[in-house]
Design a protein around this nucleic acid. Structure first.
Lengths: 281, 281
DNA sequence: CGAGCTCTTGAAGTCGCTCAAAAGCGGTGG
DNA sequence: CCACCGCTTTTGAGCGACTTCAAGAGCTCG
């Protein structure tokens, strides 16, 4: 989901590609919101206080002292997940949530009958695994769409720390809540929209999430296949391809394999307006 | 969602119909798990410690002292919502979550273009409004499917109390997490299943939730219309009706308007097995 | 450079939708 | 008590959007 490839990450002192990405964009507001200090990773330990994602991720809006509490109280380690590998499988024991640091993921739910559904794509700053708190087992699988790194946040520690730091508690609740409302939006797409509307909404949502993170708001590199997009949206890969082709030929977006550029933002919004109301209770 | 109609609720001392329902069922395990003390409602104040839903609702597994903390710390009032009325509308200010005490609700998300999607049905013990924590505004509307009553749980107080009572915190997180995984299951239905599979899954899920609450596990009275079921499952009301008719004629379930009885549980499960895998990533 | 993906595009098929009409149910009032 | 009205539900017939099947083109990476 970055347009800059992830390079130079030593085990000792990983440097976040986000920095380079931000510098290359015009979005100076998002740029200012982030700090550029190096991540201290003594033996793969990471500290929220020095992470440049901290204003996108879990510890949003914490004071210096509160961040210190987080550093002290939360034993957080960094974990690498190669492209295509699972961060965790469905049904395995839940004992930590994961914050995406670099790269991106898909989460997949599978029915007893073998039906498969992608429930979402996660990028840097997103939390993964919240659905496992209830039963103590992960109800989805999480798979890396590219070589990725995550912060491992032990849930037991998080429980304790959120009791100690109200601002952290508030934001943790916010992130769980956001997951819920995001899911509702996806259900809206799945339940009543035409193929074109689903794709348009998907693209707009993706661009928006990238914009918030300081990336370009007009072009992006998809990290997922047509089939994966289809699985999220309840469409077949051929349908996804056809719709993208149509949007390309009508001059709404420029599609070049996985490189997408929005050429006519108004037209993209009008794809949604044009769609008839299919469900009114 | 009860098969016994809700009667005799005075403003002073409402008696929960759940008690009557439980007594009429054979599920003695669920019956034992609940206490039958009267609800003290001095001026419409309610106390978790004396509520017979407390082992289904928010304060699960709390000790007597912890319950006392909840009673003292959480100013909870009871609110009546007539059939068809909104508990809250989308976009309105969020300052409390609601626990369904009697009756049932639907939650509805609406797109800017007017598309409408039901995101879930809630029955006694379920929490409503969790999606509003993130932005401070409700992202869905909640509408009563029948005359209902909810416990109003101010969110500010809940934040404080969950920091004080770890067991309450744990269970609150569990309920948020459950909402997430429930949504994922719905997305699985919406994304890849055939109409028959969606209906079968819906019925099985509904029966399961009723069973947990001590109701009969073989017959129920639907509180929602065919159109509302269709909205949840991404189907038209005619399709819902047709599928129910087919299941009826094939002897899987007995459908009589909104009265549903499962006559062949195995066959209902086989509706799912028979469905071909339509999505494999 | 070639094997294995992913993606595109076409043609035929199908499941669920749309449109339509009638029946059933519940409530109201003469 | 029964006729009437509005709403929900059922059922039929035809249609359309998306899927399925199929073949070929384009990437990617060892």
């Amino acid at each position: 989901m970055h347009q800059v490839s992830t390079k130079r990450q030593t085990a000792e002192r990983p440097v976040h590609p986000f920095v380079a990405d931000l510098r290359s964009t015009a979005d100076s507001a998002a740029l200012k919101a982030l700090t550029f200090s190096r991540l201290r990773t003594g033996a793969c330990k990471v500290h929220c206080s020095s992470c440049r994602l901290r204003e996108v991720c879990l510890p949003v809006g914490l004071t210096r002292e509160q961040l210190q509490d987080v550093d002290d109280g939360l034993v957080t380690s960094l974990r690498k997940v190669p492209k295509g590998a699972a961060l965790f499988h469905a049904g395995t024991c839940f004992d930590a949530v994961f914050a995406v640091w670099t790269g991106s993921f898909k989460t997949i739910v599978t029915s007893n009958q073998g039906n498969v559904q992608i429930t979402g794509f996660q990028m840097c700053g997103d939390l993964i695994g919240l659905g496992g708190i209830d039963t103590g087992r992960h109800e989805v699988a999480a798979v890396a769409l590219e070589d990725s790194q995550v912060c491992v946040i032990p849930y037991a520690g998080l429980e304790i720390l959120t009791r100690k730091v109200p601002a952290l508690q508030k934001h943790f609740h916010r992130l769980m809540s956001r997951e819920i409302s995001t899911n509702h939006q996806t259900m809206l797409q799945l339940g009543g929209m035409h193929a074109e509307e689903r794709i348009a909404t998907f693209l707009l949502d993706l661009f928006d999430r990238l914009r918030v993170r300081g990336f370009s708001s007009s072009s992006m590199l998809l990290r997922m296949s047509r089939e994966e997009i289809g699985s999220l949206l309840g469409l077949k890969l051929e349908t996804v391809s056809r719709v993208l082709s149509k949007l390309h030929t009508t001059g709404v977006v420029s599609v070049n394999q996985r490189h997408i550029e929005i050429t006519d933002m108004n037209a993209l919004h009008q794809v949604l307006e044009g769609g008839a109301v299919r469900n009114d209770i």
